[in-house]
Amino acid sequence: MQRVNMIMAESPGLITICLLGYLLSAECTVFLDHENANKILNRPKRYNSGKLEEFVQGNLERECMEEKCSFEEAREVFENTERTTEFWKQYVDGDQCESNPCLNGGSCKDDINSYECWCPFGFEGKNCELDVTCNIKNGRCEQFCKNSADNKVVCSCTEGYRLAENQKSCEPAVPFPCGRVSVSQTSKLTRAETVFPDVDYVNSTEAETILDNITQSTQSFNDFTRVVGGEDAKPGQFPWQVVLNGKVDAFCGGSIVNEKWIVTAAHCVETGVKITVVAGEHNIEETEHTEQKRNVIRIIPHHNYNAAINKYNHDIALLELDEPLVLNSYVTPICIADKEYTNIFLKFGSGYVSGWGRVFHKGRSALVLQYLRVPLVDRATCLRSTKFTIYNNMFCAGFHEGGRDSCQGDSGGPHVTEVEGTSFLTGIISWGEECAMKGKYGIYTKVSRYVNWIKEKTKLT
């Protein structure tokens, strides 16, 4: 034993070699072989497995989906700052455009905790909710729209109204504003409101030439003092309507412009014939205590009207009353817009006519005020429907199939267009061939041609 100890002390290297040989010859039971080890760690190889990531292109799944990435790591994937920024906006807080917040056709661009709407022409605001041009839906104005110097929408209202708090709607500024039905039992019968379409306001006024200088022999019209197929109006439903009495009662109609003036057809009036105007009328054979009678003290036909040349060209006249009318729910003026808007309103496509005229061709006159909704007829169809001249200051309205029309005794009465609950004068009943005849239409004086003249002559002093 002493000898062994001496050998170990003198030859430590020998001992180490012996131990190493023993270990190498022993069977290893701690580690699995290569094949079995792979069965336990069965993990798919990654895209760049075996390579240094710093030297390969980034992978979106590896960089940002398996674990949260930084902007720089995302930049490695896209290799483009702009594309990385677009991805980053949604990656950080989701897609803010998912709810489609942009209105009126706006395009949404996502941002971090926010979004941006790219608005089409005519709109602005956070969600493109603000109209900035009158060309689109009248700028959301209830009545009139004008573009300011910086191309912003400025709404306005006709006389007797003021802008509401929203700067879009119009509200009454006087007790009985024009064009409004205020009798409670008839307010439910107000005709369907007309909503502004998209309009090209630059070209809204037709490029028409008034044929002022045409000389033409007097034409022989049949029954051209021209509501057939209409309905009984309720008291106060058309408070701007008046009836004219002269040699015979209810020979023509008219509309209240203001307390002192009536507008009617020029062919209705004769110099030297006494005319009485009755406002607030409903049943011409009954006294309903809503009527107001006034005498006409002055007749002003349009300066281009000449019955000797043509009885229905420039067929418009103004009547001055001896005493002002007292405005109330049964006696209310009709609204008159400017030339541009009167023309736009007419193009809405349908209007209402009213009167006490004959209820059928050569038949009896109506006792109760009649009204009828009539569609506008395109000019080409209008011209083809008659052998008589249709001037540019006239328009056609009615039904091709016949059966409904204005008729004798309705002449001078109103053709009105309702705009968001307020009625505007767009025409004056003038003439036609018979009444409600198939293929024939009622012919009306186009008020847009005469609004400046009306307003100039009827100013209240």
Rank of each mutant, 00 (worst) to 15 (best):
A26N: 02
F144A: 00
K438C: 08
R379D: 08
D405F: 14
D131H: 08
Q408V: 09
L189F: 14
T422W: 02
A265P: 04
K68F: 06
P177E: 01
R364G: 11
K89H: 10
M6R: 13
G125A: 02
E434N: 09
Y91K: 15
V277K: 00
K438W: 12
T332M: 07
E98D: 08
I316S: 01
G413H: 14
E142L: 04
T194V: 12
V331Q: 01
S423C: 05
N135H: 13
F71H: 05
K234N: 09
P44S: 13
Q90T: 06
C141G: 00
Y441V: 12
N452C: 05
F31R: 14
T225V: 12
K446G: 08
F238Q: 04
A173D: 13
W261Q: 00
K137P: 10
V228P: 06
C382L: 03
S365C: 04
G106V: 02
F399M: 08
T16F: 14
V77C: 15
T426Y: 01
E434T: 15
L325P: 00
M65R: 08
S220Y: 07
P239W: 01
N38A: 10
R358Y: 05
F395G: 01
W240T: 01
P235N: 05
S204A: 05
A233V: 06
L52G: 05
M437Y: 14
I299F: 09
E323A: 11
N310M: 05
Q216H: 11
M8N: 13
T16Q: 06
L244S: 00
E320G: 03
E323Q: 11
S148V: 09
L211K: 08
L425S: 01
L32W: 11
T417Q: 04
S411E: 12
V154T: 09
V359W: 11
T225N: 11
A265G: 04
G272D: 02
G122T: 04
I297A: 04
S430T: 10
G363D: 08
G13H: 07
R43H: 08
P12L: 15
R449H: 15
E171P: 03
D200H: 07
T458H: 01
I275D: 01
A380E: 13
F87I: 10
F121P: 15
I334S: 01
V419T: 05
P333L: 00
Y371K: 08
V56F: 05
T417V: 10
C382Q: 02
V154S: 11
P375D: 07
L24G: 03
H361Y: 12
N100K: 14
H289P: 12
E420R: 15
G254S: 01
T389I: 14
T16Y: 14
N80T: 12
P172F: 04
D338V: 03
Q241R: 06
V273N: 03
E456I: 08
K438V: 07
V377A: 08
Y201L: 07
K362C: 03
V248F: 08
G50L: 09
V154P: 04
C268S: 01
E86T: 14
F121D: 08
G229W: 13
S187C: 05
D249V: 02
K457F: 07
N100L: 10
N452W: 05
N100C: 11
S217G: 06
T190Q: 13
E61I: 06
I428A: 00
G125W: 01
E286A: 07
G236D: 03
G421P: 02
G427N: 00
W118T: 11
A317N: 00
C119G: 02
E61P: 12
S99F: 13
H34I: 10
E285Q: 09
P172V: 06
A37W: 04
E418I: 14
L23D: 02
R404D: 15
G409E: 07
T209Y: 10
V353N: 02
R3E: 05
K293R: 12
K68P: 06
S184M: 06
E53C: 04
R384E: 08
L14Q: 03
S184R: 09
P12V: 12
Q2S: 09
N135D: 12
C18K: 01
V451F: 04
N147I: 08
R226S: 07
A307G: 12
S448N: 05
C335D: 01
G363L: 08
E456Y: 11
I309P: 04
H303G: 08
T158M: 13
P120R: 11
F345N: 01
E288Y: 04
I275T: 05
E165K: 13
S255H: 01
S354T: 14
D315H: 01
W261A: 02
R226Q: 08
N304S: 13
N295K: 02
L163I: 07
D111C: 11
L369R: 13
C128R: 02
L103I: 09
T190V: 12
E340L: 11
W240I: 01
Y330Q: 06
N104A: 04
G105V: 02
R43I: 10
N306Q: 08
Y441A: 09
S354L: 12
G355A: 10
R226G: 13
R449P: 15
C117W: 00
Y115G: 03
Q219N: 08
K440V: 04
R180L: 05
R62N: 10
S99W: 07
L372W: 14
A366H: 09
C128I: 02
E53V: 08
I15R: 05
L318F: 02
F424R: 01
K455G: 04
D223E: 08
T287I: 13
K387P: 07
I390T: 10
T225I: 10
K146F: 10
E401G: 10
P324T: 04
G50Q: 14
C102A: 00
N80K: 09
L211D: 11
Y441W: 05
Y441S: 03
R83D: 10
R404C: 15
G125C: 01
E165G: 10
R364A: 13
K146P: 01
V4H: 11
K137F: 08
H415Q: 01
D378I: 03
V183G: 08
Q185S: 09
C170H: 01
L211T: 09
N36S: 11
L189A: 07
R364P: 09
A37I: 06
I297D: 02
G355W: 15
M65N: 06
L376E: 03
R75S: 05
G363A: 05
T386N: 13
N295H: 05
E27R: 05
K446R: 07
Y91G: 15
P375S: 15
I40G: 15
I262V: 13
R83F: 06
E288G: 05
L376R: 05
F224A: 11
K109A: 09
Y371L: 13
G122M: 05
D223Q: 12
Y22M: 11
S25A: 08
V359Q: 13
G253E: 03
W453T: 01
I316V: 10
Y330G: 04
H361R: 15
H314F: 07
G427D: 00
K39P: 11
G421N: 14
D110N: 15
Q90A: 11
W88K: 09
N213Y: 07
K339L: 06
T186I: 12
A164C: 04
I40C: 05
F424A: 01
F251Y: 11
V77D: 14
L425W: 00
L20W: 07
G357D: 10
V243N: 04
F345Q: 02
L24K: 02
K188T: 06
F399E: 15
I7D: 05
K387N: 15
F399N: 13
S107H: 10
L244D: 01
R358C: 05
D232E: 09
I300M: 07
L425T: 01
V183D: 07
G94W: 06
F78E: 15
V377R: 05
N48S: 14
E281I: 12
T186S: 05
V248P: 02
S169E: 08
E82Y: 06
V199I: 13
E129N: 08
E208P: 13
L60E: 11
L32C: 05
